[in-house]
């Protein structure tokens, strides 16, 4: 048998994977290894596969993903800090035939926009919400977020997050599991938590995001909420590979992966 060369393999008909056409040529401004890039990529792949790119409107947050509108070749609106679900509500009510999604980080969705998040989920707007949780305020330099783990060192908790002082008086509080919280609300149809640290996790996350968009396209009422547990290697002060390992060892026990609610029914573990 003739020896096969790389030139024989690298031919257009053998292409099995490339970046989605829905992402622009602009390089991501995210740090090396950041999960935001992976999440952007899988959202673009899902929108391309569902063929709804011409009627999709995204709402970008304030945070690291503030410039998401530069990277997606779909219409985008930039919302005020934490107000992306409220903004998405307005767009969806005016244009019910559009596919509307919000893309937020944990500082935006779980801290500053808690009110908007909870009320949008409680009203059961027919939108898709993507929530990227890395347990820290990334863009502003690594301050403590409500989702920060107990004992985790950040710029504002240099000795680690301490929920209570030793005498029992309140201090920093406990990690906010907002996805469990909103799963209890009657307005949410599909609530799930996924991650992007490995190829298998990325595949599962893509399936979840696809389901969240499909529910909306089929006009099934209720919020479709996807949390992605992600890394922030710059502010966790680790390499990307170490951060992914740290995520599996420390984040996942507090934020366990899997579906929390499907078809308005809580999934019991």
């Amino acid at each position: 048998m003739a020896e096969i060369t790389l030139q024989d393999i690298i031919q257009p008909e053998n292409l099995v994977y490339e970046k989605s056409k829905l992402l622009t040529e602009k390089p991501f401004h995210y740090c090396p290894g950041c999960g935001h890039g992976t999440v952007h990529r899988i959202i673009a792949e899902v929108l391309e596969e569902l063929g709804v790119d011409d009627r999709t409107i995204g709402v970008s947050p304030v945070g690291c993903a503030v410039m998401a509108y530069d990277y997606f070749d779909v219409d985008f609106v930039e919302a005020a800090h934490g107000r992306a679900p409220a903004c998405a509500t307005g767009i969806k009510r005016v244009w019910p035939d559009k596919v509307v999604f919000s893309y937020q980080g944990d500082g935006d969705l779980a801290a500053i926009g808690t009110c908007e998040t909870i009320h949008t989920c409680n009203r059961g707007e027919n939108i898709t919400m993507i929530f990227v949780n890395n347990g820290i305020y990334g863009m502003t330099g690594g301050q403590m977020a409500p989702t920060t783990l107990v004992g985790m060192k950040t710029a504002t908790t240099p000795y680690g997050r301490m929920p209570q002082w030793p005498d029992g008086t309140p201090n920093n509080g406990f990690p906010l599991q907002i996805t469990q919280l909103i799963a209890q609300l009657p307005g949410t149809r599909y609530v799930t938590r996924q991650a992007v640290f490995s190829a298998a996790a990325v595949r599962n996350a893509k399936k979840a995001i696809k389901k969240a968009f499909q529910n909306q396209i089929e006009n099934k009422n209720g919020v479709n909420f996807v949390e992605i547990v992600s890394n922030c290697n710059s502010n966790w002060k680790m390499s990307a590979v170490d951060a992914n390992k740290w995520l599996q060892d420390n984040m996942l026990p507090v934020y366990p992966l899997g579906d929390l609610k499907d078809n308005f029914e809580l999934i019991k573990k």
């Binding site: 292409l15 099995v16 970046k19 995210y30 990529r41 490995s198 190829a199 990325v202």
Partner: peptide, 19 residues
């Protein structure tokens, strides 16, 4: 050509070919 690298690359810089 399993494309594991391509789907985990945060910047989408890898094209994968399989024969």
């Amino acid at each position: 050509g399993c494309a594991s690298c391509g789907i985990t690359c945060p910047d989408g810089v890898i094209k994968v070919y399989k024969k």
